[in-house]
Simulated assay, not measured.
Amino acid sequence: MVGTTESHEPHVVALCGSLRDGSRTKIALESVLEAARENGATTELVDLRSYELPSLNAVEPEPSDADHLRATIADADSVALGTPNYHGSYTGALKNALDYCRREEFAETTVGLLEVAGGEFPGSAIAHLRTVSRTLHAWPLPTEVAVPNSRTTITDDGIEDDAVADRVRRLGHDLVAYADVSSYPETVESGTTGAGSGADD
């Protein structure tokens, strides 16, 4: 795989920005992680409902779950950020979680972006998360997933639209294939080879 060695099993973490029971974003992220596992990764889904993360107040002591979140992100070779579209952007829950993180956790980490929208024209939340990822010195993949019409596209049984499902699997694959993309020139020089798929333009 591009940028990874045969002896290293990439670890992919998905951070779900939805707090809703039966979240379609969570269902989509689980499909991303399933594809990552099929491509040789270990995976972990971060459900923010399990974390005690009050709105960040810089003058207040941080909750212990902030350290837990940062450690989880720091341990990842790749991170998938998934969010529903709320008023043209990503959720406050995800923003708050990212506010607790620092550049040290995300720097040189491969990031994949996924947005789930109730309407026909998703994409703005991904654009905002791409800016955040770059600010955190991460490496956002060109491959991204924008899911439209989520009420019919994603059900309890999974992703019903074959094209969207293929795109989700591609994201999971690329999160593994490019898990160490920040060191790609060095790994090529040292003789590491692999069969990365090439990311979409």
Rank of each mutant, 00 (worst) to 15 (best):
G92H: 03
A93Q: 09
S150P: 11
Y51R: 13
P61Q: 06
V12F: 04
D161A: 11
L56Y: 11
E44M: 11
L56K: 09
L141C: 10
E104Q: 00
G194I: 04
A146V: 15
T42R: 15
L113W: 02
E62Y: 09
D162Y: 10
G172S: 13
G158W: 08
S124G: 14
S89I: 10
P63W: 10
P122C: 14
S150H: 04
R102F: 00
H173D: 05
V176M: 11
A107H: 01
V59R: 00
R37N: 11
D99H: 07
F121E: 13
N57C: 07
T155W: 09
L29D: 07
S50Q: 13
P142A: 10
V147E: 04
V164L: 10
V168P: 08
T152K: 15
R20V: 10
L15T: 06
G118N: 06
C101R: 01
A58T: 13
D161S: 11
A76D: 02
A97Y: 00
P185Q: 00
L53W: 05
A127N: 14
T42H: 02
R170D: 12
G92W: 07
L81S: 01
E52A: 13
V132D: 02
R151S: 07
E62I: 12
E9H: 11
I159N: 04
A14G: 05
W139G: 03
M1F: 03
V79K: 03
A80W: 06
H128F: 06
L171Q: 10
N57T: 05
D200N: 14
S197Q: 09
C101V: 05
V59W: 02
A80V: 11
A14N: 07
L113M: 09
R103F: 00
N96L: 07
K95P: 05
T135N: 01
R102A: 02
N96K: 06
S64F: 03
S183E: 00
G191I: 01
P122Q: 13
I154P: 10
S55A: 08
H128N: 07
S124E: 15
D99L: 02
A41V: 08
D161Q: 12
S7G: 06
T4H: 01
D21A: 15
G191W: 03
L15K: 02
T25R: 12
H173K: 11
Y184S: 01
R24I: 03
T109Q: 00
